[in-house]
Design a protein around this nucleic acid. Structure first.
Lengths: 122, 122
DNA sequence: TGTAGCATTGACGTTAACGTAAACTGCAAG
DNA sequence: CTTGCAGTTTACGTTAACGTCAATGCTACA
């Protein structure tokens, strides 16, 4: 259990941002007697997911959907089947992004190679 | 050479967005006698870069920097060396994103596998 | 027990990346 | 010629994702 300032430091995001994520339902930390937020390992894992998701260009609504997927406390066959279907779809998206990024990487490498050659031959 | 509406259709972005990219210096199409924008293959390649960049979570300022890299009309040894250095840095960033995305993919796969197992064993 | 230093909840401000509407222009078809 | 569509500029509007500030509440520590 850590405080909001600790969490803020650990992940390099402002406390405002963390509170905002709570505001829109992405986090729901416990409170102390004095009403201070206390973050569990589960909360920490969630924030990690959020921060990473943002880095890949997902917006907070999309991330919210993914959190549901990563939230392991689900039961009922129907619910689980839905989760699996949705998860596979998201996995496909991630796959596509990886492939495109790899293509981009290749293009950049070719370009750099060309530049280095031109530099050598002049 | 294609029109703005053609370009808009081809890339599934609005004409407003295309004009905005021009406004901030990401595109600079030629004009016809009647002042209409005409987009060359080079412009089209740029827009492709922009759209793709956005998808990966780069903002337009970062994309602007990358466009400079992908712009092949550079000369002078010093300039080229700078470009190569900068390009390698960007390549590193792309590499990192790929690796993190792959880690994320693995996690999702594990999770889905667990779900499917639970579904089978109940 | 006082006080420095985090924490809390509003509430309004800001910025990037467009959306939208208005007023105007150029061109092709009937 | 005019009708109508596609394009142009200008300018104000919008939304997500926070930033910032004010007023107030805990709480550890000298």
């Amino acid at each position: 259990m850590i405080s909001i300032s600790q969490l803020s430091e650990d992940f390099d995001v402002t406390t405002r941002t963390i509170r905002y994520y709570e505001e829109i339902g992405l986090l729901s930390p416990e409170r102390t007697d004095g009403n201070r937020r206390m973050y569990s390992n589960k909360d920490i894992a969630r924030l990690k997911l959020i921060v990473r998701g943002k880095k890949y260009g997902f917006n907070l609504d999309e991330i919210k959907e993914m959190i549901v997927l990563f939230d392991k406390d689900r039961s009922g066959k129907a619910q689980m089947k839905k989760t699996i279907t949705y998860g596979k779809k998201k996995l496909e998206e991630v796959n596509e992004r990886i492939e495109e990024l790899q293509q981009m990487k290749t293009e950049m490498e070719v370009l750099l190679w060309e530049f280095e050659n031109r530099l050598r031959n002049e």
